[in-house]
Design a protein around this nucleic acid. Structure first.
Lengths: 174, 174
DNA sequence: TAGTGCATGTAATGCGTTACATGATTTC
DNA sequence: GAAATCATGTAACGCATTACATGCACTA
């Protein structure tokens, strides 16, 4: 059982509590998808792989005729998860179309180029609004779950301020 | 000619000056790769596609026996590029393994979990050092090329400060 | 009874990297 | 003469999304 990119997202979530594939997808979308997305097309095959490898175990929990397979992490799986948690690689891959556009903006008239900065700020604002909408007000997330949520909020706020600052600077300079 | 993800990186670079595939790869690695990577396996086929579509034109500039094909953007290509520059999507895709690890850190003993924050800060530091090493001191990049370079530096500095702040906060709280 | 949510899964397609093959030229 | 750099390209593979197929249960 060779771990791939999805492995840790799925295994990590099952480390919190037993879940079905459907639950996992929902949890990903609710929590980590802005920095680690996963689709059904990855999750269901991965659950099979993880079960074959003995890292998780599934049971058919049938809730009134509706098929539902719930997986829980095994002891072996938990050992693997902890091994990964102790790893120290910090690979970040990013694909940011708005930065790419900014990079090529020198050929545009100054006013339009500055408009791209405003558009970027707007992108941050939308992401911020989205993240805030996820906060269900029930509070009491575990400290590191909360920490990562804060990262999203703080990053957006930083980004908005950065665009403001740079827009002012360029407006003076151009 | 249906544009894909690589299209704009390649076309944008050719919008600055004529280049060979090799040059483009080098330019990507020197400038935009931390938020928009591209490999030979994408660049060479894309150059063919762009040429077939009439967005760029290639000429065999042979520099003493060594084969070298230099491409320049056409008028049609420049129109397309400008159309894209005026677009306002701000899609950001990120895959940040260190954030994923932090998200699942609640099962670790507090000291080890805080170690992950320190590891993240170290990641920012390394990226910052890498970005600074790119600055050849020759200065005088066009304003928006410089802007995006600054973004990288500022983002790393913000990230380092964020990790510091959160580490202090959690140390008090845990 | 229509719409939404729960629930599982696969096939086709596209995106992107890695590794390889090939060979000339320049620099030490 | 060895090593680095310039230069082009492809094949195999892996990663990820999208779209589709299927069907039950709950609720307005």
């Amino acid at each position: 059982m060779q771990p791939t990119a999805v492995t840790w997202a799925v295994l990590g979530l099952l480390g919190i509590k037993p879940m079905s594939g459907y639950d996992i997808k929902a949890a990903v979308d609710r929590t980590i998808r802005h920095f680690w997305a996963a689709s059904y097309g990855q999750i269901y095959p991965e659950l099979k792989r993880l079960e074959e490898g003995g890292w998780i175990a599934g049971t058919d929990a049938d809730r009134g005729g509706r098929a539902r397979r719930v997986y829980r992490i095994t002891a072996a799986g938990r050992r693997r998860l902890e091994g990964w948690l102790h790893g120290y690689e910090t690979r970040i891959e990013m694909r940011d179309e708005s930065l790419l556009r900014l990079f090529f903006a020198d050929t545009l008239p100054p006013g339009e180029a500055l408009g791209l900065l405003a558009a970027r700020r707007e992108g941050y604002r939308m992401m911020l609004a989205y993240l805030r909408s996820l906060d269900d007000g029930e509070g009491a997330d575990p400290p590191f779950v909360d920490l990562v949520y804060r990262w999203g909020l703080d990053y957006c706020e930083w980004g908005i301020a950065w665009c403001d600052r740079q827009e002012r600077r360029l407006r003076r300079a151009l």
